[in-house]
Amino acid sequence: MISFRDNIVFLIAKAHQQAQGFLKGQLKTFGLTPVQCLLVESLWEEEGLSVGEIGRRLVLDTATLAGVLDRMVNAGWVRREVDSEDARVARVFLTEKAREATAELATTIGSTNNELLNKFSLEEKVLFKRFLRDIHNYD
């Protein structure tokens, strides 16, 4: 029988709790949740994504994403615009507030990642990320 201490589901869940809790604390000064931060990061890579594309990239269902987006629009982090070629599609853009916070937010995200992985060698960090992507089947 496997001990719960060696159960991979337990280990991943506890690592997730610790990482989310730590990130949550780091993001308090911005007034963002970890999911909202991921949404901002996705728009750093490519602005003007459709709501559907953001959902696919972040693996979020439409209902969850709609609530997250509503709160971010109300807080002034993003804006939604109707696609000029297809009125059924909403595109999401960063606001000036988000752009002004980019450097500080990126630094916070980087330091959070470094803090969480500081016990690992470079090779272990690369392998760890690969293993997590493989479990998730995410490129």
Score class of each variant (00 low, 15 high):
L105S: 01
L32W: 06
T62V: 14
V78F: 07
I109E: 05
V40I: 15
A101F: 08
P34E: 02
V51E: 14
F30C: 02
T102F: 12
L27R: 01
L132G: 01
D61C: 14
A75E: 14
Q20M: 15
C37T: 13
L23A: 15
D61S: 12
V89S: 10
L39D: 07
V82L: 15
M72A: 05
V35K: 06
S84E: 15
E96H: 10
S111D: 12
E41R: 11
F4E: 03
R56I: 14
E46F: 05
L58N: 00
A19W: 06
C37L: 07
A13V: 00
T33K: 09
G25K: 00
E100M: 13
G31L: 02
M1I: 08
D139K: 14
S3R: 07
L58M: 04
E96P: 03
D70W: 00
R56D: 14
N137L: 06
E124G: 01
F22N: 05
G48P: 08
R133W: 08
S111V: 10
T102Q: 14
N118H: 11
L43R: 01
V73K: 14
L32T: 09
E104D: 13
S84H: 14
E45N: 09
G67H: 07
A90W: 00
Q20H: 11
V59H: 01
E104S: 13
S50K: 05
V92W: 08
V126A: 14
N118M: 11
G25T: 01
K14I: 10
E123C: 06
K125W: 12
A63V: 15
A101G: 07
E123P: 03
P34C: 02
S121F: 00
G110D: 09
V9Q: 10
L60T: 00
N7Y: 13
R56N: 14
S42A: 09
G52N: 11
E81V: 15
G67N: 12
E104Y: 05
K119W: 08
L58Y: 02
C37H: 06
T108P: 04
T112K: 05
V59D: 04
V73T: 15
Q26P: 06
V78Q: 04
R71C: 04
R5M: 11
T33G: 09
F120Y: 11
N74P: 08
H136A: 10
G55M: 03
V92P: 13
N113S: 12
D61P: 11
E45S: 09
V82G: 13
R88G: 08
Q18L: 10
G110H: 08
L43C: 01
G76D: 08
T112Q: 05
L122F: 12
R56K: 15
Y138I: 14
K125P: 13
S50W: 03
A103D: 13
E96G: 09
E124I: 01
F131N: 02
N113H: 12
V51F: 05
I109G: 03
D6V: 09
G76Y: 08
A90E: 04
L23D: 10
